[in-house]
Design a protein around this nucleic acid. Structure first.
Lengths: 206, 206
DNA sequence: GCACTCGTTAACCAAATGGTTAAACTATGA
DNA sequence: TCATAGTTTAACCATTTGGTTAACGAGTGC
């Protein structure tokens, strides 16, 4: 009861190790032994803290997804002007991604292989849902007022997310095509923080 | 020796089954038994035709990647004008994707988890490499002539690929965010064939 | 010092899984 | 019809893997 700090540290170490291994190898590719090794503990201790692989995975997954949702929501649901909002969204989103570069692949994979697990656990949380309504309304208004070209809000949002996320998903492919090494690619990603928003705004501006 | 047709059919059935299962569950998620079931054959027959899981996977993977490469190359390396080329590229690429909607996730996953397997086998093939040089030159020329805004060729190409591929990778996520069912999403993807090129051209046009 | 609790470990277990083997089946050509 | 070669299967094997157990250890309160 006293050395709570130590046990908390162990739990944290496990979580970090689990995130690293899951994200790198995917659910079925990840071995409990890998995670134990990574956390430098006995495998049985994993099950002591987190009963099963399933539960451990779900915890890691949910913790990370839930960390992202509110941030995105707060921007997309703000009262900023459209162009500002796009800039903020891109900046915030790319910032988050550069701190969690492997999260997209993790999420996309999990969502593809076990959609039900996600829908059942995340969907019920009201705050889990993205609040896109205001954003959609805003785009329609701007188009009606002739400030931007007519564009389906869905298209615009999909394009924005695509431009932000894909470079993280397709990193190895892009590196291969262009022959970038790690450092070069990191610079490309850094540069995109400036480019992406204006690319989008350019394409809808009248 | 005579009933080659039957054995070819079996082999084909296995390949199709393998592609389906691998693409759906990923390498480590896929079970040889799943593939056997899918192909309606005995598991031992899998090993009779394709010695091991590794070899079967690699074959499926390579066959599919190699099917895509030449198509993309022929467009990107053509002598069309830039805007035409962008339109052709997007049309061809999205067409191919709509015929192989799960391929992107498959490729991205394999490339992320076993990059070496890919680099060693694909990279040596000269035609495996995308021929981006002419395309890059073209963008630089158009920018110099003031026909388009100055944009890094890498950025433009990355953005183009992002806008094409991401909707397939992020399908479940996007479906979830917007609440699309299968049919609606298929329509969205269909619509993008018209939208994406003009979105890109808009964003670089002067 | 002693019992008690929590954290940790080595050893173990059962199920799953990739892969093998030997036998059976089928068509063919001599 | 019979030997042969290719195809298919059921049964089997070894290893991997998630998960359990029982015991040990260290700190705590009495």
């Amino acid at each position: 009861m006293k050395l709570k700090k130590i046990s908390a540290t162990t739990e944290e170490r496990i979580k970090e190790a689990a995130k690293k291994v899951f994200v790198q190898k995917g659910y079925s590719g990840a071995r409990m032994q890998d995670i134990a090794n990574e956390a430098k503990i006995n495998k049985a201790l994993l099950h002591y803290y987190f009963r099963s692989k399933d539960q451990l995975f779900e915890l890691i997954f949910m913790e990370n997804v839930q960390k992202m949702m509110p941030k995105i929501n707060s921007i997309i649901d703000s009262d900023d002007k459209l162009f500002d909002k796009i800039e903020n969204f891109v900046a915030e989103y790319l910032g988050m991604l550069s701190e969690n570069p492997f999260l997209p692949l993790f999420v996309v994979n999990e969502l593809s292989s076990h959609p039900e697990r996600f829908f059942q656990k995340i969907a019920p949380l009201a705050n889990g849902n993205l609040k896109v309504n205001k954003f959609i309304q805003q785009i329609q208004d701007e188009a009606a007022r002739g400030k931007i070209i007519p564009i389906s809000p869905v298209t615009l949002l999909m394009n924005t997310i695509s431009l932000c996320v894909f470079p993280y998903l397709g990193k190895p492919m892009i590196q291969f095509v262009f022959g970038f090494d790690e450092l070069q690619y990191r610079m490309i990603l850094e540069q995109r923080k400036k480019e992406v928003a204006s690319f989008i705004i350019n394409s809808i501006k009248k």
